[in-house]
Design a protein around this nucleic acid. Structure first.
Lengths: 243, 243
DNA sequence: TCAAAAGTGTTATATGTACACCCATGG
DNA sequence: CCATGGGTGTACATATAACACTTTTGA
């Protein structure tokens, strides 16, 4: 029976963190794992694996993230399901792909080794399977969503200055933002709250520290069902930011 | 070995068309099929089925749509993959769900029968599995995307008046739109082109007929990769429309 | 006391909204 | 010749962008 071909289900995760390079510019980085088996053996690929039948999709993505980087995701969302008939030799593979944001200072200390390495997300080598295209799509999604959703704080720690938050936007959107307008835009959304503390040790006027304010982060009630079952909505649109 | 549970892959499609009810208001309708097997036998459910290992995901969604309604989709996009461990008894089922728009006047003549029936999308009975939640999410997606993407013409035929196009927006967004501002907004996007023909037979001034202008429908080039591999981008954002 | 980032104020422009008004046709 | 939807003009409100300016700190 040569026409019997099995379909297998995999879960992979595109992980993003920010890393500040030598000249002080923050850019997007992503961890990849080296393939230790035959399709594309030795090439770099997205972290992931076969889906156990008793594990939730999102849990599998979070586990994958943890086992390759040692980190917990600060943001995790399903990206797309890739199922092209010829995307892998042998059995057909359908990959449910998630994308994740991790806290960047934690990512600096994250696991690396012979089989796990971080790459600049905008300048990747040739990867296994269709993974270059998948990461390209995840990048597009991150950049698009950053313009209307409140996800930037996922790259930062518990408290942060507005300059640090702006740096996240600038790194992801790849354009400078006016500090004055940025401040007003963010403050008007009510997503951040001043802690009362200031960040000391800067060479200049010490900036206020803010905290992501989850209390104000409610849905606007326009539609009842807006998010896939089982997934709370941590996101509220805010006005565009330009220049 | 009682802990061996298989995972199976299914593809389902949420199909939308507009139907004008007795008092002349257009509303969203969706076709459902009656279950003829045991999990939830006799209940209404989304059209779909198991994924053949040699068929593309999108092709399976289009085939499903065709076999239940006899129609071809004018718009088809992946919605989400639902894989909750307990969403179905027996083997675990992972469903890759698509959503589709079909031409509404064709849908009026579409197949119906003992096992296929159209329902008002906002007023559904209790469906099999998690299908109420899935359709609710698809509705949210349709309404959200209608505000920034050019998909409304998928409900209409080759040519249409601006009043017909506006009726689509009003039905989906559930709010009246100012005819004057709607006209300018649509014209400024360049997505429609006047055919030169006018629609005769109305009791009043005959309106111009327009055609969806695919030529101007290019991506804006901000990012290179914006859409999953194999899927061209028929969509360009346009300004919001209110009131 | 000075450089530089934090933070505030003000104005110009673009975009969205409301609505008055003219046009063209079938009845 | 009139009721009605098609189609145009215009003024007002709000959102966004640009940038001058004041404040506060460490060096």
């Amino acid at each position: 029976m040569s026409d019997a071909r099995a379909s297998r289900l995999a879960v992979s995760t595109v992980i993003f963190a920010l890393r500040t390079d030598d000249d002080g510019l923050a850019t997007l980085w992503t961890p990849l794992v080296r393939r230790t088996r035959d399709p594309h053996l030795g090439q770099w690929a997205l972290p992931g694996g076969w889906l156990p039948s008793d594990e939730e999709l999102e849990a599998a993505a979070a586990r994958t993230l943890r086992s390759t980087t040692g980190l917990a995701p600060k943001y995790l969302e399903q990206l797309y399901t890739f199922g092209g008939v010829d995307r892998s030799p042998g059995d057909r593979v359908i990959s449910v792909v998630y994308w994740a944001l991790v806290q960047s200072d934690e990512a600096e200390r994250a696991a690396v080794g012979e089989n796990v390495q971080w790459f600049a997300a905008d300048d990747l080598p040739a990867l296994a399977f269709d993974h270059n295209a998948i990461i390209g799509y995840a990048l597009w999604r991150l950049r698009t969503k950053m313009e209307y959703a409140r996800i930037a704080h996922a790259f930062l720690g518990e408290t942060f200055t507005l300059a640090q938050l702006r740096e996240v936007y600038e790194a992801v959107l790849q354009k400078p933002l006016d500090p004055a307008n940025f401040r007003r835009t963010i403050e008007s959304t009510g997503t951040v709250a001043a802690t009362g503390e200031r960040l000391a040790g800067t060479p200049h006027r010490p900036p206020m520290l803010y905290r992501y304010d989850v209390a104000t982060n409610l849905t606007d009630g326009t539609f009842t069902t807006r998010i896939p079952p089982g997934k709370p909505d941590p996101i509220k649109p805010h006005p565009r930011m330009r220049t």
